[in-house]
Structures are given as C-alpha cells and as structure tokens.
C-alpha cells in the first residue's frame, strides 16, 4: 500500500504539514482543521501524522484517533489519485444512483470505501452534495458531474481509466 512510502517527497510533505500546523496551533478548537489539512495533503490521516497533530496541538493521541474515526471524510487508508464519489442522497437515489455505484464497482474492481491496490482509484458514496437539480450526481476529485446515466457512467469510467492508468505512477514506493 501507499501508506508505507518513505521517500524524500514524503519527508518534505511532512515538513510542510508541520509548518501548516505551526500557523494554526494557537487557535481555539483547531483539531478538525488540522485533520482537514492532513486529509487534503496526504489523502488520508496516517498514524504518524496523527501523532504529530496530537503533539503539536497538545491533545491526547486517543482523542485525535477518536475524532478521525468519527467523521466519514477522514480516512485511515489513502484515497486514490482519482477519488470517485457517488451521491446516494435521496434525490440521487430515486434517480438511479445505485446503478451508477454498481457500474463503478464492477469497472474499477473495488467496493464503496475502498482504494485500488495501485493507489489510482478510490470509490466512496456521499449523502448529497447539494447539486440535486442535476441528480443523479457523481464527483471526481470534488468536481460535480450531473445528469448521469449508466451509459455516461461507462464513458466517464473509461475516460478516467485512460487518464489515470496511462500516467506514470507518482514516485511513491510500494
């Protein structure tokens, strides 16, 4: 898994993250923000990063872990470079979101909540991104694609596969 990378790149990311933390550490109630910063930078909140947060913000590690595991946006496994999310809010559900999810699971070979072993794709579901007028909706790295049909989902997945599988892997050891 990508979680055991040990490149210079990662050290740099950690250092940058520590600088981010320095900037916010004196504010009140900064744990959530720190976790968002970590999730955005690393694609998940690994345990060494949890420890850094605990030490810098002076909160118990157990609290950090407790908060990470409470909120669905924080993950303990890395999100893929392409993070695909299917909205399963009510409007999207009655307009056929389940079919889209099934299509994505079959094509990518991963289930809701998983990341592909090569780190390219992750799949998740959300409950409404507020674009219900375009239901059913999927997001790719946060960008909204509306009025999806199974046909268009097939096309989107094919495009994404082309885009992400042709790019050389980033310099992460596995």
């Amino acid at each position: 898994m990508v979680s055991h990378i040990n490149s210079e790149e990662r050290q740099k990311e950690i250092a940058a993250f520590e600088r981010d933390l320095e900037r916010i550490k004196d504010g009140r109630g900064m744990l959530m923000l720190a976790l968002h910063l970590a999730q955005n930078r690393f694609g998940y909140v690994p345990s060494d990063v949890q420890r850094i947060i605990a030490d810098t913000l002076k909160v118990p590690l157990s609290t950090v872990y407790g908060v990470v595991t409470f909120y669905s946006r924080f993950t303990l496994i890395p999100r893929g470079r392409c993070d695909l999310s299917i909205c399963t809010g009510t409007t999207c559900y009655i307009q056929g979101a389940e079919e889209l999810l099934k299509e994505a699971e079959e094509t990518l070979g991963i289930k809701d909540g998983e990341t592909s072993p090569d780190g390219n794709f992750s799949l998740s579901t959300t409950r409404c991104v507020g674009a219900c007028s375009l239901a059913p909706v999927v997001t790719v790295n946060g960008e909204v694609h509306g009025r999806m049909t199974v046909q268009e989902m097939k096309k989107l997945l094919a495009d994404l596969k082309k885009q992400y599988l042709s790019q050389p892997e980033s310099n992460e050891d596995k």
Binding site: G29, M30, L31, M32, L33, L35, H36, L57, V59, T63, G66, V67, F70, Y71, S72, R73, F74, T126, R127
Partner: peptide, 22 residues
C-alpha cells in the same frame, strides 16, 4: 469551521462538540 461528513453534527450540541474538536 468545516464539518467532516457527519449528519448528526447539525444538532446544536453535537455541532458545538465538533467545533471544539471532539
């Protein structure tokens, strides 16, 4: 302050806990 995908945080006391970092 940002939420992080928990519906229950719309409830007032849960929301306060979330801002506090719990």
């Amino acid at each position: 302050r940002l939420g992080a995908g928990a519906f229950v945080c719309g409830e007032t006391t849960a929301l306060a806990a979330s801002i506090e970092g719990r």
